[in-house]
Design a protein around this nucleic acid. Structure first.
Length: 491
DNA sequence: ATGTGC
């Protein structure tokens, strides 16, 4: 690996980059901004979002990302971008194999945080009479909140290793958590290629053995929603989405296990980085060549943690099905899985002659209709993309486009994106007030902590309608439907 | 995001 010693003055390292508008919905920072940049920085935004993005250090973080060895095209920022660990949340970066690097900070601490959508035949009138009791039962079945584990489901070591290696198919075939059709409607089939439980530390496994089927904290939630608006009747119908129908959205990740995997490998890469001749402007960007031992072992551990994330959403969906059937009857309460998307992963993908490691952190893969990597049922249509809004606000269903490969490395946004820090939101919003506001809007809410509720107030987030409009207008994905919550479980 | 710690 070629070494990149570019002495940077303190002023240059802390200089505030100014993004220049270059096309509709696209802003750039050119490589002339700093001598260590290998590619430009490109952000997808409108005039309002680009201002919000400039309030934190996320742009400078994206400039730092543009210095990574092997990076191609540009360091990309999604319209919901905000500051994260090393990489911004809403950052996408691809490095070319065989020499390019992989960086745990480019995936994030919550490996395979993601979203799953199920749809029912029910309408609001069918569920309204039992809604409060139903969401309360959900809160009893799905442990939610920071540090929560499951008392009912605990995996022994053999089962956990199996799950880390083989993902959701293992859960369905061996533990009967779900139906066999489910595995055809998951990104990567719910089993990441190259996942190896042997590269996951004992400590990570210890943290993970009793957290399967739990929600966690932060912006993770389970929502019962209805299809509020349809933008493309044909596409929506092909997905089984019709106006007024009830849906279930599950937003969570790999909990303590994924967090520990990230912690373990950031430390390890930080230690070996200079031995590989790599120098980065921020220690949080610790990385290693993908083909090195540390790179390969991280990729295998990351895949295993991602499998845990898919499995976590599978178990929660299983509870939702059981509860819907209990309250609404076996056939009326049926929930069909539409798809499950990851928004914190790295994947090896081919673009022309190039094999790339695509880091997506707070960004959703958005493959188009001609992709062979999506379920046969969706080929010709495009990969479903789910954008959870902030808790209690609208969510979106989009479809990936073929053009997104050229525009944004087949990626789009992942949510509303924070506009305010947790601390700030906690000081500005009272959780109890927010709870009453949501209840006044007819949203049943189950939440263990008013403080955590305040941290996730909709006012702490960017406007999801605006974020999604940028993605749609820029051609990264197209709008299909908008979903509105009627009941929420949050940590 | 996270049994929130170098």
């Amino acid at each position: 690996m070629e070494s990149t010693e570019v002495p940077l003055s303190k002023e240059l390292l802390h200089a505030r980059p100014t993004p220049e508008p270059v096309e509709d919905w696209i802003y750039e920072i050119g490589t002339s901004f700093r001598p260590d940049m290998r590619v430009p920085v490109r952000i997808f935004a409108d005039d309002v979002l680009i201002q919000q993005i400039q309030r934190d250090r996320s742009l400078r973080q994206l400039v730092n990302v543009s210095t990574l060895p092997g990076i191609v095209d540009a360091a990309l920022g999604m319209p919901d971008m905000h500051e994260g660990y090393g990489f911004p949340v809403g950052g996408v970066a691809a490095t070319r194999l065989p020499d390019g690097v992989i960086s745990p900070g480019g995936i994030g601490f919550d490996i395979n945080c993601g979203v799953r959508l199920l749809v029912s035949e029910l309408e609001e009138d069918d569920i309204r009479p039992v809604l409060e009791k139903l969401i309360h039962e959900v809160s009893r079945s799905v442990p939610a909140g920071f540090g929560r584990s499951s008392r009912k489901l605990s995996l022994n070591r053999r089962q956990l290793d199996h799950l880390l290696n083989d993902g959701v198919p293992y859960l369905v075939e061996e533990l009967h958590l779900g139906v066999s059709e489910d595995v055809h409607f998951l990104e990567s089939g719910g089993a990441m290629p190259g996942a190896k439980s042997t590269q996951v530390s004992e400590r990570a496994k210890q943290r993970g053995h009793d957290q399967l089927g739990t929600l966690g904290g932060g912006n993770h939630f389970v929502e019962i929603q209805l299809v509020d608006q349809v933008f493309d009747d044909d596409a929506a119908a092909q997905l089984g989405l019709f106006p007024g129908k009830i849906t279930v959205l599950v937003h969570t990740g790999s909990r303590g296990l994924g967090h520990q995997v990230c912690t373990d490998y950031v430390k390890r890469m930080d230690a070996v980085m200079t031995r590989h001749g790599i120098h980065v402007p921020d220690r949080q960007l610790a990385c290693a060549p993908f083909s090195s031992q540390a790179g390969q072992e991280y990729f295998a551990a990351m895949g295993a943690a991602a499998n845990y994330g898919f499995a976590n959403r599978q178990v929660i969906a299983h509870h939702m099905r059981r509860i819907f059937e209990e309250f609404l009857g076996e056939s009326r309460g049926a929930l069909r899985l539409i798809y499950d998307v990851a928004h914190n992963t790295a994947k090896v993908e081919r673009y022309g002659d190039d094999e790339l490691v695509v880091h997506r952190k707070g960004a959703t893969r958005a493959f188009g209709p001609s992709s062979r990597e999506i379920p046969p049922a969706y080929q010709g249509l495009g990969q479903p993309v789910f954008i959870p809004g902030s808790m209690g606000t609208a969510s979106y269903v989009l479809l990936g486009t073929d053009e997104a490969r050229d525009i944004s490395l087949a990626s789009c946004c992942h949510g509303a994106g924070r506009a305010m820090s947790r601390t700030q939101s906690k000081h500005e919003v009272r959780g109890a007030d927010l709870r009453h506001e949501l209840e006044d809007e007819g949203i049943a809410i189950e939440c263990t902590s008013n403080v955590e509720l305040a941290e996730e107030a909709p006012t702490a987030y960017k406007d999801v309608d605006r974020v999604v409009d940028v993605v749609h207008e820029a051609g990264m994905a197209r709008k299909v439907a908008r979903l509105r919550p009627i009941a929420v479980l949050k940590g």
